[in-house]
Amino acid sequence: MSKGPGLFADIGKKAKDLLTRDYNTDQKFSISSNSISGVALTSTALKKGGLHAADVAAQYKYRNTLFVVKIDTDSNVLTAISFTEILPSTKAIATFKVPDYNSSKLEVQCFHDHATVTATAALKQNPLIDVTATLGSPTISFGAEAGYDTTSRTFTKYNFGISVSKPEKCASVIMGDKADSIRASYLHHLDESKKSAAVGEVFRKFSTNENIITVGGLYAVDHLTNVKAKLNSNGKLGALLQHEVLPKSVVTISGEVDTKTLDKYPRFGLSLALKP
């Protein structure tokens, strides 16, 4: 693949991941293993509130083709097949879900040194079609995204974004919700190894005059332990501690509290991921 501007979904992704990734208020346990034949298996158990769920995923790569099969406790089977380099700098992803065949879709991604284009269509008679385009370079990029419903002949979404990235920092602005909202974010790495960082995000929804400001950070206590924290203008405070107990195996303890209603109990989550 080319070293171009990346996907539209990459705009603002680094800041979003720092503010949301690994934060949870559930109990989650997953274990992964690799077989001699090259098949990777992952089993996950999740407790959310009073509900329990589990799934098993298998992954196998053969040359330029990646096969992924996932089965959950409701007997849903999700199959994803990814093909790379069928054409130069092109990737195709087909997903099928049984018994819900209407959720099947096909996505094609085309990469160029100065542009990236994707097209996704549901595999049914009157599909939903999503198209994205990003122009620029790895340093600065401009992107747009649109969704079209062929049944009602209406646009389901159209969003626009711009991203500026340098090795130590990145900033982005996304106009979303059919131009009804704007989200601006800035992330700055505090060290050369990018183990510690600070991030800020401003979100405004014009139709409701809603404004949310969120600040957060990541700090590496040592090479095995990270801590993260975030606070938004609504008073939601979140924090997590992540420790590598074994090579590639991580335990995460996270919590959330509403500082404006301290009479409510804080929520806590625990996650353990074991990998070979």
Rank of each mutant, 00 (worst) to 15 (best):
M1P: 00
M1A: 12
G4Q: 03
G4T: 00
P5T: 04
D10L: 04
G12N: 02
A15I: 04
K16W: 03
D17C: 11
T25G: 07
L46Q: 07
K47L: 13
H52F: 11
H52A: 12
V56F: 10
A57L: 06
A58M: 13
A58H: 03
Y60G: 00
T65A: 11
V69M: 10
S82W: 00
F83L: 15
T84P: 02
E85L: 04
P88C: 09
A92W: 00
I93K: 12
V98C: 04
P99L: 06
S103C: 02
K105E: 00
E107S: 11
C110T: 05
H112F: 10
H114W: 11
H114L: 11
T116Q: 09
V117Q: 03
T118K: 03
T120W: 03
T120D: 01
K124Q: 09
N126W: 04
N126A: 12
L128N: 12
L128V: 09
I129G: 01
D130K: 13
V131M: 09
T132C: 03
A133N: 02
L135F: 15
S137K: 08
G143C: 04
A146P: 01
A146I: 06
Y148H: 09
R153W: 05
R153M: 09
F155I: 05
K157Y: 06
K157W: 02
N159G: 05
F160H: 05
K166M: 11
K169T: 07
C170D: 06
A171W: 05
V173H: 03
L187C: 06
D191M: 10
D191K: 08
K194H: 15
G200R: 03
G200V: 11
R204Y: 14
T208F: 10
E210I: 05
I213S: 11
T214P: 00
G216A: 07
V227R: 03
A229C: 14
K230R: 14
L231G: 03
K236H: 14
L240F: 10
L241G: 02
H243S: 11
K248L: 10
S249R: 03
T252D: 06
G255C: 08
K260G: 09
L262I: 15
L262S: 09
P266G: 12
G269C: 05
S271M: 10
S271G: 13
A273G: 09
P276T: 06
P276H: 12
